[in-house]
Design a protein around this nucleic acid. Structure first.
Length: 513
RNA sequence: GGCGAGGUAGCUCAGUUGGUUAGAGCACAGGACUCAUAAGCCUGGGGUCGGCGGUUCGAAUCCGCCCCUCGCUACCA
């Protein structure tokens, strides 16, 4: 029986260009997906785009394009981002696909059947320019006109027929669920926010609109389209061929192991989505992980501040592994994190070029010069040798545990410490002094350090897939051997095959760059 | 306003149930080495652990008050 693992990113709303936030969610999710694969799981990793709504419809009209064609273009931008970020997603779902229509229809019908949907009026102060509703206390009078306190734009009272979802009815059941499943929402601080929000009481949710048409029609009333969250969230099961609950994908992968999301959409995932699923009598995902925001030099990125760090630009300039590594290293997953070009440079130079990159370089070039470019055989491993290799192997259970808790920062830290350890071992062992007087000892040292490089590279593979693949292939280890199992296994090397040539893995970034 | 998180070296952060000279990485200074991307290794300087008071033989760690920062406080996504 194989172990399954289902992980998702949010589906992105493509009204703007992909930015660092999108990149971050996707990279984080990809790292977990890749790790679970090398751990031996059968992984389904899903990402995609959320394409309905008024904003897209208006944009399409403005561009004089058919909304579907317009969406095709927007979505392809995000699809190409998956390549740029080197994501290993198994599927890319779009809410405009027919499989999603079917799935949303079924969800709607189930909610009707359970008695959770009713027709009423939705009313409130609406600002056309902000495309947002405001509460009474967010409105003020100015020259006899009502305006939004926040944006200053004028608002009007609108009333619209709308279907509602009885969110309030699920309040107790949600709280009970949070209580029973302490790690349903992570990190804990986010869980507390959600719990206290629900405790304050839930209002019913408007789930349809008549003011625009770009969406999935309400099955029994085509004047309405199904509004955003009920539509968008359902993507997670649409990709599993819901409503066919006997489908192999659905059976294997639902409930999802973890939805990776940004904290800005936590409520929808931690409250609405579980409530919808309760009502539809479907199991709930095992975990919602809400990460923080990426800030640029301590501030939110904005055009006016001119501090936007564009992931695509950074990748073009420095490389995709470099960005992936840096984001994991610098941002404490779960909290907001600050990134800057200065720190990116330091990180690439220190961690990647000097530490891991140079470790590989110094060892491989030594082997080339002194061992006919073949991995030497060990004989008579000493205690220092066994200790070096033993440390990393005995850490594997804790490393797996860290990943299961989504504690990527500690995971990375631990592996970096192995890289330090390896550099120190190489220094202290001084293999160059054994060239003449004890080649067997030299060989043993080299074998040991290569074993360590192999293990570090496999464990780092989920984070920096390209560079570690280069290193492992230099050692003639093929991709099907990248596994945790092979970290635990000694000597998977072919001692008769010459090593491939290793170019500089990470170029250093100079100041004038 | 209410609820929550946090304030530890120049910077980013670790510090399990209170216990010996408070740790890591980066940055900075010095040293020995040479396999390597002038990389790596060793040593060192640097902290009234936000402030005040309390409990205790002993507190960064527990209690009280105060100061500061940040998050959440529903239908743009």
């Amino acid at each position: 029986m194989s172990k399954n693992f289902y992980i998702t990113t949010p589906i992105y709303y493509p009204s703007g260009k992909p930015h660092m936030g999108h990149a971050y969610s996707s990279i984080i999710a990809d790292i977990f997906a890749r790790f679970k694969r090398i751990e031996g799981y059968n992984v389904l990793f899903l990402t995609g785009t959320d394409e309905h709504g008024q904003k897209i419809q208006k944009e399409a009209e403005k561009n004089k394009k058919d909304p579907q064609i317009f969406c095709d273009e927007l979505s392809s931008t995000f699809k190409s981002l998956t390549k740029t970020l080197n994501l290993s997603n198994d599927d890319f779902i779009r809410t405009t696909e027919s499989r999603h229509f079917k799935s949303v229809n079924e969800i709607w019908n189930r909610l009707v059947k359970s008695g959770d949907i009713y027709l009423d009026k939705y009313s409130g102060w609406y600002s056309v320019s902000d495309e947002a509703f405001y509460d009474d206390d967010e409105i003020e009078d100015k020259d006899g006109k009502k305006i939004s306190r926040l944006s200053g734009s004028s608002v009007e009272w609108v009333e619209e027929n709308s279907y509602f979802f009885k969110l309030s009815a699920w309040q107790d059941k949600l709280l009970e669920y949070y209580k029973k499943n302490k790690d349903f929402i992570l990190p804990l601080s986010r869980r507390n926010e959600v719990v206290s929000f629900v405790e304050k009481g839930l209002k019913d949710l408007s789930i349809s609109r008549t003011s625009f048409s770009w969406g999935i029609p309400v099955p029994t009333n085509n004047d309405h389209v199904i509004y955003v969250w009920l539509d968008a969230l359902t993507n997670y099961i649409s990709a599993l061929n819901f409503p066919d609950t006997n489908d192999r994908k659905f059976r294997n992968f639902w409930p999802a192991d973890v939805h990776i999301i940004g904290k800005d959409i936590l409520r929808f995932h931690a409250i609405y989505w579980p409530a919808f699923l309760f009502a539809a009598e479907l199991p709930l995902p095992k975990r919602i992980f809400g990460h923080g925001w990426i800030l640029s030099d301590e501030k939110k990125m904005s055009k006016s501040l001119g501090n936007i760090l564009d992931p695509i630009q950074i990748i073009t300039k420095y490389g995709v592994d470099q960005l992936r590594y840096y984001l994991v290293k610098e941002v404490s997953l779960g909290n907001d994190g600050s990134i800057s070009m200065e720190n990116l440079k330091n990180c690439i130079n220190n961690d990647l070029a000097n530490n891991y990159g140079n470790l590989c370089q110094r060892v491989f070039s030594f082997v080339k010069k002194n061992c006919n470019n073949k991995i030497p055989k060990a004989n008579n491993l000493k205690e220092v040798d066994l200790k070096l290799i033993g440390n990393i192997k005995s850490s594997v259970p804790s490393l797996i545990n860290l990943i299961n808790k989504q504690d990527l920062n500690s995971y990375l830290k631990m592996i970096v410490s192995f890289s330090f350890e390896a550099n120190k071992y190489f220094n202290d062992s001084e293999p160059w002094t054994y060239k003449m007087r004890d080649p067997e000892r030299m060989n043993t040292i080299l074998y040991t350090i290569i074993e360590q490089i192999k293990n570090i590279s496999i464990l780092l593979n989920p984070i920096i897939p390209n560079s570690t693949q280069t290193v492992l292939e230099t050692l003639n280890i093929s991709q099907d051997k990248f596994s945790i199992e092979n970290v635990l296994k000694d000597n998977i090397f072919n001692h008769n095959q010459e090593l491939k040539n290793l170019d500089i893995l990470f170029k250093k970034i100079e100041n004038d760059n």
